[in-house]
Every structure is written in C-alpha cells, then in structure tokens.
C-alpha cells in the first residue's frame, strides 16, 4: 500500500459500548505504526447476534449498512475475530460481494499480513496467557499471528494456555439459551487459565473475554482480562492503564 494506509476502524457494537479502551488502543497502535485511522460514525453492528440466532432478515440491512459505511477505505480493522468472520464470510451471502467485506481484517491479521510487522514496539511486563478464540482460529484462520505479536512484546512473560483451542462456552446467545452447558465449558476454561498462574488473560475478542472475565470476576480470582490490542498499544513511555 503506497503511503499511509487509510484505515477504517470498525469498533464493533460490544467494544464501542462496553470496552472503549480496546478501540482507543487500536487507534493508538495503528497510528503509532503510521496508519491514518478513521472512525465513521455511521457504523453500528455487523448483525452477528441476529444472524447466528436465526434472525437473518434483521442482519441483512446491517450488512448493507456496513458495505456502504466502509466502502472507501484501503482496509477495515476490527478488534474481533467473530465480527471479522461474520463480515468476511457471511455478509457477502446476505448482501452480495462488496470491497468493504474483502478488505476487512481482524487486528492481528492486519498487523502481520497487511502491515507486515510482528514487533509493534510494545512493552508489557506482566504474566500473560492467550485464548485463541474459535472464530479467529477456525473461521478466519489467523493461526499463530496473535502469539507472534505477543512474543515480540518486551517484558512480557507469555505462558501457554492448556487446551487453548477449546471453546470457552460463550457462543453469543448460546450462553443464555444453554446457560448450564455454557457455564460448564466456562468452568473448564477458567481452570486452565488459573493453572497457568497468569495475571492477565488476553484474547482477540471482547465477547469471549466478557464471558471468561465475568466468570473470573465472579470467583474473585484476581485475573484480569485484556484485549490483545491493549497489550500491543502499551509502551514503556505510555504503559497500559486499566481505565474503563
């Protein structure tokens, strides 16, 4: 991409509303790496919850809105594997193909594949474990990219999560419709997290983190959940501060 790429940030409705620090971290990180970041105010939601629960008709106009809102960007970055997957894999089926869909990247994909960086100059002196969320892993196929990025972070003590590829049990409305099964899956995931002795559980998706973090908080484990973007945005000069 010649010159500074013009990047549209798709914050996702969940992050916009509940986890603004993640979206601010994406802005800080991408600008540090030389991108021009814009946040078009017309954006709302990718429609994943409607679509996955069986309300396809309600998701269709949201795909159209997305295609229109992000038509003019070199790339769109979303700090979410599942929303990224919804846009790239499902929106074309709902709306027909559009450049905005194919140009949408999950954050780690954008950094590694488009910008070609793994060392983003981050500093994060904490013990961290990483949960590779299902849709990043299996829908988008981001593979080890988040881990490559984390390994390059200075000061980090990155510990492997046992049974990392097992689903945490979130699954959108699954967590409510099949609450007991979801909770059983969550319990096993939390046990794996606690086994690592990590202070921070990170992932590329705030939805899964909200679920696991909600469980960890309920049990008063003291483990913090933090989106990948916030770790990568943290530097020695401007360390991550847990403001919500």
């Amino acid at each position: 991409m010649p010159g500074a790429p013009r990047v549209g940030l798709f914050a996702t409705c969940l992050t916009d509303t509940f986890f603004p620090a993640t979206a601010r971290a994406v802005v800080r990180l991408l600008e540090r790496l030389g991108c021009t970041v814009e946040f078009p105010m017309e954006q709302t939601c990718c429609g994943q919850m409607h679509y996955n629960t069986g309300y396809r008709d309600a998701a269709r106009p949201l795909a159209a809105d997305y295609a229109r809102t992000f038509a003019g960007y070199d790339a769109v970055v979303a700090p979410s594997g599942s929303c990224g997957g919804m846009i790239r894999e499902v929106h074309p089926e709902l709306h027909g193909s559009a450049p905005a869909f194919t140009h949408t990247y999950e954050l780690s994909e954008f950094l590694v594949d488009v910008l070609g960086v793994t060392d983003v100059g981050a500093y994060f002196p904490h013990r961290v474990t990483y949960h590779p969320t299902c849709h990043s892993l299996r829908m988008l196929g981001v593979g080890d990219k988040p881990l490559e990025l984390l390994r390059a972070v200075r000061g980090i003590d990155l510990v492997a999560l046992p049974e990392a590829e097992s689903c945490c049990g979130f699954g959108g409305t699954f967590a409510v419709k099949n609450a007991d099964t979801s909770t059983a899956m969550l319990g096993d995931k939390m046990r794996c997290v606690l086994d690592t002795g990590a202070e921070v559980l990170s992932a590329g998706d705030n939805s899964c983190l909200m679920h696991i973090g909600g469980g960890l908080s309920r049990l008063r484990t003291g483990v913090t959940t933090l989106h990948l973007a916030e770790i990568l945005a943290s530097t020695e000069e401007e360390p991550w501060a847990p403001t919500r």
Binding site: A11, T15, D16, T17, F18, F19, P20, A21, A23, R24, F39, M41, A175, V176, K177, A179, T183, L186, M210, H211, G213, G214, G215, S217, R218, R244
Partner: peptide, 23 residues
C-alpha cells in the same frame, strides 16, 4: 433473560464514555 448470564458471570458495567463519544 440476563439472569441466565449473571447466574455464573458478572457483567461489565458500561463505561462512563463509549468509544464513539470519546472519538
């Protein structure tokens, strides 16, 4: 139906300012 969620998990309180407002 939110109680199905909070039976086992806390919910993060919405922050003082959404990202959109901050932007």
């Amino acid at each position: 139906p939110g109680s199905k969620w909070t039976a086992a998990r806390d919910v993060p309180a919405p922050p003082a300012e959404s990202f959109r407002s901050w932007w």
